[in-house]
Amino acid sequence: MGLEQKLGNMGVVTTRLEDLVNWSRTNAMWPMLFGLACCAIEMMSAQAANYDMSRFGMELMRASPRQSDLMIVAGRVSRKMAPVLRRLYDQMPDPKWVISMGDCASCGGVFNNYAVVQGVDEVVPVDVYVAGCPPRPEALIHGVITLHEKVRRERMKDWA
């Protein structure tokens, strides 16, 4: 669908380089398997049969930061974990994005105390925040699609 109609009989399609790159980036975005707390269980649910995130080209959870380009911070980040999280983020190759999943990762949630970092945006730059404690799998999928839209809008002059 779609592509064949554009092709016509010529076998050639013209587009902008930006759009081509963004299209390929959104359709094979590999998240890093980075479950911290409760939200990790909902992240697993989103991967499993009922919600099936592989519909969006996201079925490959990579265990290694070197092979992934999306970090889903699923759960509360403790002060002990924060430096580890930043190191993992630094190890991911560019381009890379971060989804902060759940209230704890976004703003500390119900845990306003000595042990929890009040928002993972103090440690890594966040692209999309997903609200909920924990967010439903649909909410996570919505967050992912929002990120895809954001990536599609990226312009080449910002890449450098």
């Binding site: 759960g75 403790s78 580890v84 119900v110 845990f111 306003n112 105390n113």
Partner: peptide, 11 residues
């Protein structure tokens, strides 16, 4: 351990 220490008891 302690990478998920949340301070629940204190809170």
């Amino acid at each position: 351990i302690g990478f998920l220490h949340t301070g629940i008891e204190k809170n």
